[in-house]
């Protein structure tokens, strides 16, 4: 089963975005809460958090988890405190 055009594009994108030094998934998980809060508040990323952004660009699973966290934080912001 040949890779689909979409999968080939994804591979090329991943190769282009590959950095010599990348966080692994555990390292990303340790930092993603801070990253999500800063992104949602519009604050600049601290130096270490740029590596989170790079990891999220090449790791579908961590990106899925980050997006779920971001949406959860947004929903919490929209929920009136009881």
């Amino acid at each position: 089963m040949p890779l689909s055009p979409r999968e080939i594009d994804q591979l090329l994108r991943l190769i282009a975005q590959t950095a010599d030094r990348e966080l692994n998934c555990e390292e990303c998980l340790a930092l993603v809460a801070e990253f999500a809060e800063r992104q949602l508040s519009g604050k600049n990323l601290a130096a270490g958090l740029q590596a989170v952004e790079q990891h999220l660009s090449v790791c579908n699973e961590c990106r899925e988890e980050y997006e779920a966290l971001r949406e959860t934080l947004r929903a919490m912001d929209d929920t009136p405190e009881s």
């Binding site: 998980l29 340790a30 993603v32 809460a33 801070e34 809060e37 988890e65 779920a68 966290l69 959860t72």
Partner: peptide
């Protein structure tokens, strides 16, 4: 590390 809200960190782990 205390650089986010504790519950945000905990929620990231649950997700």
């Amino acid at each position: 590390a205390g650089r986010s809200q504790f519950l945000t960190w905990a929620t990231s782990i649950a997700i």
